[in-house]
Structure formats: structure tokens, C-alpha cells
């Protein structure tokens, strides 16, 4: 299914941003003089061979094993998990443990909250990262290099300590235990800006912007019709990475929130509080916290598609 979607658009079809649709837009003129066209999922020129599949399957198994084992552990009980060798196949306690984890950890609210938090942060990071990355990559303005250095520099300060002063600020704003306390401080990221800048340096032909400018397109139009289409694969990847990061973030949310209004990771910290901590329930909670994440990633993953720019400059 996804194979079809990642197919490059047929070469002849015009998919120029702003020109193919029914609404008038800045049509790049004289594109013929441009030497290189932008291809759709460019490397997709070859089909993967058997070896490719073999390597990918091995890597996939290694990548998924801990997740698989989480599910196995979630289907057992505390005592079985202490046995050796550990279980490698499912036992009969999965639904019981999932239910315990769901009710003990306030999982419904936690999932809703985390979706809001991670969704907002991913959207903010992608949007602001793309426009700032575009400006740094393709526009000329005073202090550009200085500001870029500053942006990259902010990534170099270790994050572990900022939690203490950040909490003072949040407490001052009376945001403790509220979602904006975890959303707003990470709504933009230097990582996102830098990533999009580096991507757009190569992926966005300057000629395209010039062509749009010649047509009198405003900056917002350029952004919408030229930059965003070109940036789509990178936006999808940045969205994925940011979403996961925000979803699994633990260090700051556990300081800022509590279990009356938790994110998934905060909710999970309270799990397994039996007579002694019950590993199988903790793993069930981890599973509940991870599966929805994978669903979201699938949606993003389909968006890592080039091809929007196909034919844009060939005209």
C-alpha cells in the first residue's frame, strides 16, 4: 500500500507548486533555463533486492525485540519474570495486567494529555523550525550567521539542570500541574531549526524561490507554495522525532506535573505499587504507553515522500 504512495509522480505531470491547481498562483517562468529538475523520491529509482529486504528484516527484528518482549512481560506475572530463562512467549495475564495498569495509572487521561502535549510540541517544532530554517538557509538578512550560531549554541547546554530554574518560573506563573507547563517551554527547538536549515540548503533550489519572487509572490506565499512542499519529507521526519521525544519525555514532566493531570510517563512512574513493585504491570503500562505512539508514527511515516517538486522547474 505504502509502495504506491511513495512512487515518484510520473515525470510528465505538472506538480508545480501553485501552478497545477485551479487557483492562480505564482507560476515559475522560464524554468527551462534551470539545469536540474527536482525528482520525486529520488533514490527510489531502484527496487530493493532480496539482500535489501534481508538486512532490513534483521534490523527490524533487533529494533522491535524489546518492544515485543515488553508485551511478553506484560502477559506474565511478577514471579515468572524473576525466573530464568525469562519467558519469550505470551502468558495468560495480558488483559488482567493491562486493566490494572489502565486503572492504576489513570491511563485514559494520561494518553489524552500526552497526545495534546506531544502533538502541540511536534506541530510547533515543525512549523517554527521550518520557517526559521528556511530563513536561515535561503534568505539574506543582517546578523543571520550570528543568530544561527546562537541557535546552534543553545543546543550545547546540557538540559538536566534547567529544570530547577524552569520550575521556579513555572511556579511563578502558577502553571504547576498544568499542561502548558510542559508544552510551552519546548514548543520550539534549536534542533528543529538547524535540521530544517540543513535540509533546505540542498533540497530547496534557490531558483524556485527566485522564480516565485519574480512573479511577485509574498514571503508567505513562497513559504506555502514553495518551501513547505519541498520540506515535506523533512517535516515528516522532524515531526516523528519530536513527537516521540515529547511523548517519552520524563525528566521535566515529572517535576512539573502530577498524577491528577499526568502525561503517560508521569502516570507510569506511579505504576506497580503493589505489595512490592509488580514488573508485569509496569510492563503492561509501558506497552499501553508505547502502542498509540507507534500508530501516530505510522501516519507520519507515510509522509516521508518526495515528489512534490517533480516537474516544478522543468515546466
Amino acid at each position: 500500500m505504502s509502495v504506491l504512495k511513495s512512487d515518484p509522480a510520473p515525470a510528465g505531470r505538472t506538480t508545480a507548486p501553485g501552478s497545477g491547481g485551479d487557483r492562480p498562483g505564482p507560476t515559475p517562468r522560464g524554468g527551462g533555463k534551470l539545469s536540474r529538475g527536482r525528482a520525486g523520491s529520488a533514490g527510489g529509482q531502484h527496487h530493493g533486492g532480496r539482500l535489501t529486504y534481508a538486512v532490513l528484516i534483521v534490523v527490524t527484528v533487533i529494533a522491535l525485540f524489546p518492544l515485543f518482549w515488553t508485551a511478553v512481560a506484560a502477559s506474565r506475572n511478577n514471579t515468572r519474570l524473576a525466573e530464568t530463562p525469562p519467558p519469550f512467549w505470551f502468558g495468560g495475564n495480558l488483559f488482567k495486567n493491562l486493566e490494572t495498569a489502565w486503572t492504576d495509572a489513570n491511563m485514559g487521561l494520561a494518553l489524552l494529555n500526552t497526545t495534546i502535549v506531544a502533538g502541540s510540541i511536534a506541530a510547533g517544532t515543525v512549523l517554527f523550525g521550518t520557517i526559521a530554517g528556511f530563513a536561515f538557509a535561503k534568505l539574506r538578512f543582517r546578523f543571520r550567521n550570528l543568530l544561527l550560531m546562537l541557535t546552534i549554541g543553545t543546543m550545547m547546554v546540557p538540559p538536566q539542570l534547567s529544570v530547577v530554574p524552569l520550575f521556579m518560573a513555572i511556579a511563578e506563573l502558577e502553571w504547576t500541574n498544568q499542561l502548558q507547563a510542559v508544552i510551552l517551554p519546548t514548543l520550539v527547538s534549536a534542533f528543529g531549526v538547524f535540521f530544517m536549515r540543513q535540509y533546505l540548503l540542498e533540497a530547496l533550489p534557490t531558483e524556485l524561490i527566485e522564480a516565485a519572487r519574480v512573479d511577485g509572490a509574498s514571503s508567505l506565499r513562497v513559504l506555502w507554495h514553495v518551501v513547505f512542499p519541498a520540506a515535506r519529507p523533512a517535516m515528516a521526519v522532524l515531526g516523528m522525532l519530536t513527537f516521540v521525544m515529547a511523548w517519552n519525555d520524563f525528566f521535566w514532566p515529572i517535576i512539573a506535573l502530577n498524577q491528577q493531570n499526568p502525561t503517560v510517563q508521569v502516570a507510569l512512574t506511579g505504576l506497580g505499587r503493589g505489595y512490592v513493585p509488580d514488573q508485569s504491570v509496569i510492563m503492561a503500562g509501558a506497552l499501553l504507553g508505547t502502542l498509540p505512539l507507534l500508530l501516530v508514527l505510522t501516519v507520519f511515516g507515510k509522509q516521508i515522500v518526495g515528489g512534490i517538486m517533480q516537474g516544478a522547474v522543468k515546466g
Binding site: V163, F167, A171, E172, E174, I255, N258, G270, R273
Partner: peptide, 23 residues
Amino acid sequence: QTVIERNENYYPQLLTRLSSNSG
């Protein structure tokens, strides 16, 4: 109730919150 399973996570949170009288 709010429970943090490990005291090594709980105690710094408690100190941080005490110092700001918040949450």
C-alpha cells in the same frame, strides 16, 4: 493520591516544589 514509585525521583521533585511553594 499521586505516587512516584522511586524515591530518587520523588525526593528532588518534593524539594523543588517546596522551594517554590508550588504544586
